[in-house]
Design a protein around this nucleic acid. Structure first.
Lengths: 104, 104
DNA sequence: AGTTTGTACAACCAAATGGTTGCTTTATTT
DNA sequence: AAATAAAGCAACCATTTGGTTGTACAAACT
C-alpha cells in the first residue's frame, strides 16, 4: 500500500464531505465546525488536517483560532476524472465504427 | 466506523479508478482486466466486487467467464456533489448582499 | 491574576483496507 | 479423457483509518 493523500481519498469520508459543504457557506474556526457533528473535537481536527494536506481546506491562524476556508479548485480533479471517464465511454462505438471501416 | 460502501469510497482507490477507465473502453472479463496491473488476480477480483456492490460495474456470467461492464450512472452522485458544493460556495456573497439589504 | 476558550500533542484502540498465498471448482480446449 | 484456463473461496497479514481519552499550552476575557 502506497501513501495516498489525494482529493479522491479526502472526499471518500462522509464526515469530510459534510465539513466541505459546511465550509462552503463561509470560513469557520475549528470550534465552529465541530457544532452539529457527533464526534469529538480531535476527530474533526484530524479531518481538517487531511483536507488541508490535499489543498481542499486552507488554515489561517488568527489569534488562538484556526480559521478554515474551503478551496474549490482541487475538486476539479474529481469532476474532471468523471468527465474523462464518460468521454472514454462515449467513444467506444466510434472506435468500433472505425474498426469496421478498416475491414472494408 | 459505519460500513460505508458508496461511490465516493469506490473511486477513492487509484487501482479502482484505473479499472473503471479501462472498462470505459469496453467490457472485459477478469483475466482481461488483470493485464497491465501489477497486482494479483484476487486483488483485482476484490476491487471488482467493491465496484459491483456500489453499481459502478455490472457482472454478467458467460460460460466460465465473468464479463464486467462499467455503469456510468452512479458516478453522477460524485459530480453532482462537487457541483452542489460549488453552488453553495458561489452563494456566499449573495447571502451577504441580502444581509446588507435587510440592514437598510 | 485567574479563569475560560481554542487548539495542539500523544498514546491508544477496534475495525477496515489492500494485499497476499494456497487450494478448489467449473468450463473450455486439445 | 486429460490438460488448461477462468474464476471462487478462505485464511492470513501489515498498514491505514476513524475514532477515543488525557494532558498541556497559549490567547482572551473577567
Amino acid at each position: 500500500m502506497i501513501q495516498r493523500r489525494d482529493v479522491f481519498q479526502a472526499i471518500s469520508d462522509p464526515t469530510r464531505r459534510m465539513i466541505i459543504q459546511k465550509l462552503s457557506r463561509g470560513p469557520q474556526n475549528l470550534a465552529g465546525i465541530i457544532e452539529d457533528f457527533g464526534v469529538s473535537r480531535q476527530a474533526i481536527a484530524k479531518h481538517i488536517k487531511i483536507l488541508n494536506e490535499c489543498g481542499v481546506v486552507s488554515i489561517t491562524p488568527k489569534g488562538r483560532e484556526q480559521v478554515c476556508e474551503v478551496r474549490m479548485a482541487p475538486l476539479d480533479e474529481v469532476s474532471n476524472w468523471v468527465a474523462e471517464s464518460r468521454t472514454i465511454w462515449g467513444q467506444r462505438f466510434q472506435q468500433l465504427g472505425k474498426f469496421l471501416d478498416d475491414e472494408k
